[in-house]
């Protein structure tokens, strides 16, 4: 375990009784106070991974330590500092909001604290729903109640399993604000998501998981620099049918009916991009420039490239 890792996972594998191998030798350190986003397609193993850390799934091999404690041998120590917001809206619909949150707090061994629960519900914009039955709440409200339940025992690690799945834009932004607020207060957050935009917006580091394998875990910015590509689009004054021989070495492609030359290059790391030379070679080849613009690949492009690459299939 590295010195500031709050969660440390070593050689973690999980094979279900039906033979499906959901996790394959996963190694991961989650740093204290960070927001880690786990990206992956459906069935990649994201939920199995967090369920194993939370004690809902038994690992087939490997060890997990949380704050230095083993999740199986010292489960009380590890579970009391973890909060989990599940993917499904699993609530007992006949309970009242206040009661269900107080129930969660008690389950995690904390004495009743009505004032804290009131504040928590206020912070989650549930102030006028405290005594409402859960069955009367909208989906978005139920999602907030699940977050309140997960935070009811003041955990220092919060797992959010697809927190914004099926949530409208406004609530999604509210969630991001909430996550940011929790991070400010020192809570370590691990979230799984389909939405690359979400990871791009709030995560410090991104882990990509596919077919039970953790393909990589990187700082978000490093990842985009390392794997991200930039495209320089050079709009020409007249369209061309072929790329001049003098420009072949740049690996250009022609788009927009021959009006645009596209140059793809890796950004960052202080390496020369070759743009200056390309532009001067274009002028020398007799072509006239109309406009120039660049676009950067998103985390989504990087993710798609990663999970589709043959070595990770």
């Amino acid at each position: 375990m590295t010195s500031d890792a709050i969660i440390s996972i070593r050689n973690l594998s999980k094979t279900y009784e039906n033979g499906h191998q959901a996790l394959k030798s996963v190694e991961l350190d989650v740093q204290r106070g960070e927001i880690l986003a786990l990206l992956g397609p459906n069935g990649a193993g994201k939920t199995t991974l967090i369920s194993t850390i939370c004690g809902l799934v038994r690992p087939s091999t490997g060890t997990i330590t949380v704050d230095g404690f083993d999740t199986i041998k010292q489960f009380r120590k590890t579970r009391e500092i973890i909060g989990l917001v599940p993917q499904e809206l699993t609530l007992s619909v006949f309970d009242k909001v206040r009661d269900t949150v107080a129930f969660s707090r008690g389950l995690f061994g904390k004495p009743p604290a009505p004032a804290y629960i009131d504040k928590l519900l206020d912070d989650l914009s549930l102030h006028d729903k405290k005594d409402a039955m859960l069955m009367t709440l909208s989906g978005g409200m139920k999602r907030r109640v699940l977050i309140a339940k997960a935070l009811s025992h003041e955990p220092s690690i919060l797992f959010l399993d697809e927190p914004t799945a099926g949530v409208d834009v406004e609530l999604r932004k509210d969630m991001w604000k909430l996550v940011d607020g929790l991070r400010q207060s020192g809570v370590t957050i691990i979230l799984t998501t389909h939405y690359i935009e979400e990871a791009e917006e709030i995560a410090d580091r991104v882990g990509v998981i596919n077919n039970g394998e953790l393909l990589l875990v990187e700082e978000k910015r490093t990842l985009m620099q390392k794997l991200g590509k930039k495209r320089l689009m050079v709009e020409l004054a007249e369209s061309v049918t072929t790329i001049p021989a003098s420009l072949q070495k740049y690996g250009l492609s022609l788009e927009m009916d021959g009006r645009t030359l596209v140059y793809t290059y890796r950004a960052g790391e202080g390496k020369p991009t070759g743009i200056t030379r390309l532009l001067s070679d274009i002028s020398e080849s007799g072509l006239h420039l109309q406009d120039v613009k660049t676009t950067e690949s998103s985390l989504e492009d990087i993710f798609v490239d990663l999970v589709r690459s043959p070595e990770h299939q």
């Binding site: 004690g55 489960f75 579970r79 009391e80 599940p86 061994g109």
Partner: peptide, 8 residues
């Protein structure tokens, strides 16, 4: 899930 992930 809540009971099974609690320190109980």
């Amino acid at each position: 899930y809540e009971v099974m992930s609690a320190p109980i």
